[in-house]
Every structure is written in structure tokens, then in C-alpha cells.
Design a protein around this nucleic acid. Structure first.
Lengths: 145, 145
DNA sequence: AGTCACTAGTTGTATATACACCTATTTGTC
DNA sequence: GACAAATAGGTGTATATACAACTAGTGACT
């Protein structure tokens, strides 16, 4: 199994980016049938989880720059999968899933789980934990460093 | 320290991409004084390590799509930091660092190490190993999955 | 030699990402 | 209430990333 590894890079950033590229390609391939990009599914997952939430809160959860987020949300709204409402503070935009968005999200579930499984079965159990738990620590650390 | 973590995401791909974004922003900030982007420094590091190497080998090492690589190499060549030679097989392009490239790489060393240190001191020691060693396994696994 | 499959790399196009800067709104202070 | 500082979000621009389709060179089989 370790024979399949790519060479270790000295740079932590390069290591992360390389892994992100490789894993993204795997997920995009599985998600292709859904018509959703990884970035879009990630946003639907975040909204499913958070319910109605301000745009800025989505950006913090995903460590996404506000401008990137702004442009990624737009096509989801155009497709009718998410809906914007205005809060008391009228600068603020709150987003929530529409019924169509929930359906779309449900239809993407099986392909997403195939991607998760495809990767997971290739890894030792502790590496899965690394991905989903320890990287949450790393992301938080980098944000505040 | 764990109080600084971002919430755990269910999707391994989203977790990786979020961490990559957060860490990239940290490194880009430190590298700004060098005039090099993370992607460019990563290529110079790879060439420093591999010596003269075919373009395709660089792509495999970094899990970079050939088209992405092609367009990332071009500005480095234009800046005179890398040089192309042609192999026996005349389809193949081999790249190596120029003297100017080695100088540039040397000047970027201190800022790069500051970025590494800034992240590293925020992490528990085992997390550093996870980043540079275990992510090499993850990247390899995803590639072959 | 002809040709067909394969491989290395590029071009066209689309999405992902973020910085600098902008507008609209809110809030704190006088 | 007036107004400066702070905040939410968007625009302009530049780079990062990759798929589909392409060109050009290689090699194998006849």
C-alpha cells in the first residue's frame, strides 16, 4: 500500500494542494453524473447542515474568501437550488436550500458516497480520520496563524 | 488549541480543499515579498529536487494535470528561471533551473521557512507529520483509486 | 514505406480562487 | 442627529485548475 504513495514533499502547503488536486479529481469524476461540481455540492452540504445562514457564516465555515463565495453562490441561486432572504441588518444576505435544492442534494448523495468509499477503501482507517478531523484543526490553525 | 479548529466536515474532499485554501493563504502572504506564487515556488522546489526532468514527470510528482502544468511553467521560463531542452524523443520537453532560477529559489527560502514555521508552531507535532507524510499516501491513493 | 495506436505537450473553454477596491448599511461617539 | 469607523457584500482583474479536442512525434506491425 505504501508503494502507491507519491514522494513526500518538504512543503506542507504543496503537500496539501497536491492531495487536494488528486482527491478533487476523484470526486469530480463520481459527481459528473449529478451535474454538480465539488464546490457546489460542498455549499449545498453546508446549507443543509446550517439551515438558513448568513453568507459570511458560510465563508467562515468553508474558509472561503467572500468574493469566491459570492461567485459560487450565484449559479446555485440561478438554478433555483438556494434562495436569498434579507435579515434585519439589510447588508446581510441569508441563504437557505429550496425544495428543488434539497432534491438535488438528495440525488447527489449516492455518487458522493461512492467517491467517499472509493477513497476510504484505499486508505488505512487512521488516514480517514486525518482527512476529516485533523484537517479541521489544520485549517483552523492556518486561519488564525 | 482544539478550540481554534473549524467544524469537522463530513466530506473528505471538502475538508482537504478547505485546509488547502487556508494554508495557501498563509503561504501566499509570506511569499508575497518574493514575487513568487505558491504554485511557482512548488515547481522550483520540484526542479531543484529532481534536477533536469521531463515535463510529464513533474506533472506526476505534483499530481498536476498536464495542461495546468504547461501554463504554470510558461511564466517561469519567460522570467528566465527555468530552461527547456529537448530529449532524444523530440516530443519530450525537459526542464531545469537556470542560475537565475537557483538564485530566486534561494531568496525565497527564508520567507518559505517563515510560513512553514508559522503553521508548524500552531500544530501539534504529529499533525505536521500528517501533512507532509500521510498526505503523500492520500494523494497516491486518490490517484490510483 | 504505410499506417495505426500510443504518447508528449498545447489551445480553447469553463470553473475556482483571491486581492484591491468599491458601495451600502450599520454602529459607536460626540 | 452627524459623522467616522467598521461590516456585508459585489466588481474588476489575475492566477489556478482541468476537460475536450488538437498537433506532432514515436513505435510496432505489415
Amino acid at each position: 500500500m505504501a508503494a502507491d504513495a507519491l514522494p513526500v514533499l518538504a512543503c506542507a502547503c504543496a503537500s496539501l494542494r497536491r492531495a487536494a488536486r488528486a482527491v478533487t479529481q476523484l470526486y469530480e469524476a463520481e459527481l459528473r453524473v449529478t451535474g454538480l461540481r465539488v464546490s457546489q455540492l460542498t455549499l449545498l452540504q453546508a446549507l443543509q447542515r446550517m439551515g438558513s445562514s448568513p453568507q459570511s457564516a458560510l465563508g467562515e465555515l468553508l474558509a472561503l474568501d467572500a468574493t469566491t463565495l459570492s461567485r459560487t453562490l450565484r449559479p446555485l441561486a440561478r438554478a433555483g437550488w438556494i434562495r436569498a432572504t434579507r435579515g434585519h441588518d439589510r447588508r446581510e444576505t441569508r441563504w437557505s436550500l429550496t425544495a428543488a435544492g434539497r432534491r438535488r442534494f438528495a440525488r447527489a448523495r449516492a455518487p458522493w458516497e461512492r467517491a467517499q468509499a472509493r477513497l476510504r477503501t484505499r486508505l488505512r482507517p487512521e488516514h480517514w480520520k486525518l482527512l476529516v478531523e485533523d484537517l479541521a484543526l489544520v485549517a483552523g490553525a492556518a486561519r488564525r496563524a
